[in-house]
Write a protein that binds this DNA or RNA. Sequence first.
DNA 1: CAAGGTGCCAGACATTTGTTTCATTGACGC
DNA 2: GCGTCAATGAAACAAATGTCTGGCACCTTG
Lengths: 321, 321
Amino acid sequence: MSNEQSENRGDWPEQLAVRVARCYYELGMRQQEIAALLGIGRARVIRLLAEARENGIVTIHINSPLLENVELAEQLTERFNLLSAEVCLSHTADEIQLAEQIAISANQYVVRLIKNGMTIGLGWGVTLKELVRRMDRVNTTGVSVVSLLGSLTQRSSIDRFEASTALASKLGAECFYLPAPIVCDSQSSRELLVDQHLFKQIYNRALAADLAVVSIGGLNSATIRQAGLVDEDEYSSANQAGAVGNFLGLYIDKNADVIDHPINQRIVSVSGDDFLRIPRRVMVSAGESKVEAIFAVLQKGLLTDVVTDQATAQALLKLKK
Amino acid sequence: MSNEQSENRGDWPEQLAVRVARCYYELGMRQQEIAALLGIGRARVIRLLAEARENGIVTIHINSPLLENVELAEQLTERFNLLSAEVCLSHTADEIQLAEQIAISANQYVVRLIKNGMTIGLGWGVTLKELVRRMDRVNTTGVSVVSLLGSLTQRSSIDRFEASTALASKLGAECFYLPAPIVCDSQSSRELLVDQHLFKQIYNRALAADLAVVSIGGLNSATIRQAGLVDEDEYSSANQAGAVGNFLGLYIDKNADVIDHPINQRIVSVSGDDFLRIPRRVMVSAGESKVEAIFAVLQKGLLTDVVTDQATAQALLKLKK
DNA sequence: CAAGGTGCCAGACATTTGTTTCATTGACGC
DNA sequence: GCGTCAATGAAACAAATGTCTGGCACCTTG
């Protein structure tokens, strides 16, 4: 039977995980059996299974929608004049867990929108990172991914928030980064960087995106400050200047207008009218603290699609009145 | 819009299952919590989860292929001149379990082939039934499903083997049946039925299918006889006449030629050259007892795609030599 | 070559999940 | 009304899964 296959095909960790996953989910074997079959410890089987789910090697889909959420989605679509919306169940107020949960729903939603030959503009943040991490691997051709914001420069931030690279790898796509930090030292250095030929080239590529997937930063969300890009002083002064959240790197007020504050002069991102040139603009976001900002952005018509959770959807619909 | 909010939205059993599934798989809640939240017993939560997996409300995908199986698939593709093939892991020799396992792999394979506006011709048997039962629900438009064989007439057989109806419901598609039993009483009654206007109409529809999904019946497979369509005498005499299996209802010999036997005169199905007019012909089958028949059919070039398991794939490749 | 680290297995343990049994409920048919 | 039957929850139990510890082998690094 299974003769000792040669050896060195592909990277082992992943192949092992795949094998374990197939034995477990497709063949319905017990972890103990699998461990015995593959000659490894049961603990490892458990780790590999967890890892496989984390990585999106294994994905679980629920094909039937929950009626009440379909209704909420329809209401959102109508009230904010969207192309479509998706509402998922939520159970926790913890923003990190929430991000994971929305990510799962958004996965299917986004995967359906991806077509061959497409350029995808991508934002930033834990939610998107999570989304991309658990996303199905899809075989595409001619797809490219462009970051809509400048780059993060700290390794730790990149690991937590940078999603483009991971998305590109899931899709087997090319990936482009705006060659400038997301927050520049000063307005003048921003202008210098933005004026570079290479920068413009990539910026134009971003403008030509067919699909944008973005998130929104609530103001007191940890994300922005965790990234260490904005210090406390700036944060609180932006706050006082009427900021309700952060959209594509820029601090916005309750009308979704970019507030007049020095920090916004230093941000590198595709925003404003340029952003609107992307025909399909999907927001993936939820959470108590982001409702106001999400509402503002929706109200202003910046988006064509929304993926959020029950609680946020209900809050948004209430605000509308 | 939101008209019947209050109570009667959708059928409850399914909605409950969906809700439980989402809580469990997306939100990662414990069964105990879910039971408490929804005010039902934990036992029911378990039953609903099982049911959801059975029905394909919940589907689990493994997105990364197993390298050794990719190799086997490539070998199959090349040796039998196929468009593509898929090989899944197998762990059991039990044909029923095997059917379940292949069905899981075939699901993804077949779903990828389905396009809007397509007509799908479908065969018969436990494997296909299983395939369809666990298949993802896909939203399609303009798809129709046509049975490639005459109809089953006993309720119990229908429940076990008839796949077209279920497929159509998963796809939201139209479904057409050949208006004749799969096995007629006599050759003459077959001719009479086949000559009906309505029959020809649907037969032509079947001929115009873009995709056929079929299985193969091993000779001593329980399926054929379970259906109670062929009695023991006929079975053993067909056996003696050199039958190695059953393809689209017809008994075939080791060259995949339809054997000269009275039973074959009474079968209603789309076969022979007519079958070859369907451009994409996928076989989903595996099992020790079917190897010879599968080999014959492949050798004769009746198929363009195969989904099978490791053991069968290896056996097929050995035979080729 | 040794210190420190990592990854793994083995096995003990806690938790979760699955199964069985039994009593209750409520719908249905007569 | 009144039995019958299926569906369900409760509780007890069995099995599986997940977590943790210690120890060993193997690496890296100085």
